[in-house]
Amino acid sequence: MVILNIVIIIFLITCALAIGKIKDLIGAVILFSAYSLVMSILWLILNTPDVAITEAAIGAGVTSILFFAVISKTKRYEK
């Protein structure tokens, strides 16, 4: 269980750093969605299934759809 926690936290830190660095905005939204999905698994390990359900529905579902809708109105690549 400790090894699983360490792997998940390393993945989360890598995702968060990559979201800041990446220039492709659609790639950033996909990375953010993966971050939310793994974060919901971490909430489940920490015995908060309530927060896990909300994180999976809001973080991975609705937020990324809203970001995609905004990106479709502007440009895909950051300058």
Partner: peptide
């Protein structure tokens, strides 16, 4: 999730977000 909100994890917010996502 909405109907079991008071006896199990979940509730109005999480279930409503899931229904909203299906409409989207």
């Amino acid at each position: 999730i909405i109907l079991n909100g008071h006896i199990s994890p979940g509730g109005g917010f999480a279930g409503g977000a899931i229904i909203g996502t299906s409409l989207i």
